[in-house]
Amino acid sequence: MQTEETVQDGVLVVGVRVPRLEASNAPEFRRTLIERIEAGHQQIVIDLAQVQFIDSSALGALIGAVKRMGALGTIALAAPNGTLSRLLTLTRMDKVFPITETVEDAVAKLAS
């Protein structure tokens, strides 16, 4: 699975560079996130700008990562497109993640 990672203001930005997050790549995505958390990253922004579709398994991966992070830090979702946005709204993920329109907003939010 392709991801692109940068650190901005001490915040790890994981850019997902695949159009679909689903059962076939969700476990790997989950592993990647957990590795970063275990490596000590406490502020993680997941850039979803290029993701067209996400299924319940991928959502499970995100939830699993948050559970792993627990109270230590924050995982934010940035720039979800229409379909994703709808799913995140449906499942009220705003209760679980900070969700922002852009990566910069998320970084600013987490860095503060």
């Binding site: 959502l59 939830i63 709204t89 449906l90 499942t91 009220r92 993920m93 209760k95 679980v96």
Partner: peptide, 13 residues
């Protein structure tokens, strides 16, 4: 109006 899935957060509201 949507809602958090079961088993995600302790206080789903």
């Amino acid at each position: 109006e949507g809602g958090v899935p079961v088993g995600v957060v302790p206080e789903p509201g």
